[in-house]
């Protein structure tokens, strides 16, 4: 697969010219240069490069229709779009949780299509994934759920349950819970936690992976506005403090602008906007849903 220098990444901006005015487009183009990494990270290969990604679930509907974009290390990117636009399919295809029909994905410097099962697992271990519905194991404690973040890097079965995990891992899991402000619920079963607490435990599980890149699929969509705001702020703070790369989907346009460096909008499986969030406002983004 050919790699393009980060500074020359061709951004698929405003593919649908009718959705935004020309001034907005040129402003977005201009400011894109400003968010291209210019520090030492620029020397690093981008964390994610997607080229010509296509995916259909049946013969008539193309969910992803030739998606191209690049995410430099340390950048925070929001994917927006109406239901069915292809956001979740795109995230899952990037991690090969769904097999794409065509196109290339280069993740953390590895060509995803060429990876064997074991190599794929090793790569996924470096990527924290936070789901909309938390996806915790309901009958297990919060601490055990967080320990599962260490499954790929631990030999044998020790992090399966907190009762058989070594003290070092238990301490680390508790520290992750404390970072999301939930050290006091370590022993509580996951199905006894509130929605906001569950999502924070899911974030702690992702931190336990010691990830390089964090992916989140509508991380606060199942929470009430107040809990959603609180969780999103905590999540974004942690990402910024750890210097992680973030790719998240959201229906909350204010979150996309507030917590991402850059916004990519999808419509019917294609990118129709790719611009720095500092140049966007909610009204502009809302127009993309019309």
């Amino acid at each position: 697969m050919t790699m393009e220098p980060a500074s020359g990444v061709p951004l698929a901006m405003f593919r649908d010219a009718t959705s935004l005015d020309e001034a907005g487009a040129s402003r977005a183009f201009a400011s894109q240069a400003a968010i291209m990494p210019v520090n030492e990270k620029a020397a690093r290969e981008p964390d994610l490069v997607v080229r010509g990604l296509r995916k259909s679930f049946d013969k008539t509907t193309r969910v992803l229709d030739g998606v191209d974009f690049t995410v430099p290390a340390g950048q925070s990117v929001a994917l927006i779009g109406a239901n069915g636009a292809g956001k979740s399919t795109l995230l899952r295809s990037c991690l090969r949780l769904i097999e794409p029909d065509a196109g290339d994905v280069r993740l953390l410097g590895r060509d995803m299509r060429s990876l064997k099962a074991r190599e794929l697992r090793e790569l996924r271990a470096e990527i924290g994934f936070v789901f909309q519905k938390h996806n915790l194991v309901p009958r297990l404690s919060a601490l055990t759920n967080v320990l599962h973040g260490a499954l790929p890097r631990s030999a044998l079965a020790r992090p399966w349950f907190q009762s058989c995990a070594p003290k070092s891992l238990r301490d680390e899991a508790l520290a992750c819970l404390e970072r999301v402000g939930l050290g006091h619920v370590a022993a509580r079963r996951a199905d006894k936690l509130s929605g906001g607490q569950s999502q924070r435990v899911a974030i702690a599980r992702a931190l336990m992976q010691r990830p390089r890149l964090m992916v989140a699929d509508e991380p606060v969509a199942s929470l009430d506005p107040s809990s959603g705001e609180e969780v999103m702020r905590l999540f974004a703070d942690l990402i910024r403090r750890e210097g992680l790369t973030l790719l998240f989907t959201s229906h909350d346009l204010s979150h996309a602008i507030a917590y991402a460096d850059r916004v990519i909008a999808l419509r019917r499986g294609s990118i129709v906007l790719d611009a720095p969030s500092s140049e966007l406002n909610v009204a502009t983004l809302r127009a993309l849903y019309d």
Partner: peptide, 28 residues
């Protein structure tokens, strides 16, 4: 429930870990 199974697959857990940590607790 496939949700926790997908989560553990996404973080690179082996199939055995997936069975022990997500499937059996759910089916218990």
């Amino acid at each position: 429930d496939r949700g926790p199974q997908e989560a553990l697959s996404a973080i690179g857990a082996s199939k055995l870990s997936l069975v022990m940590c997500a499937v059996i607790p759910a089916a218990l």
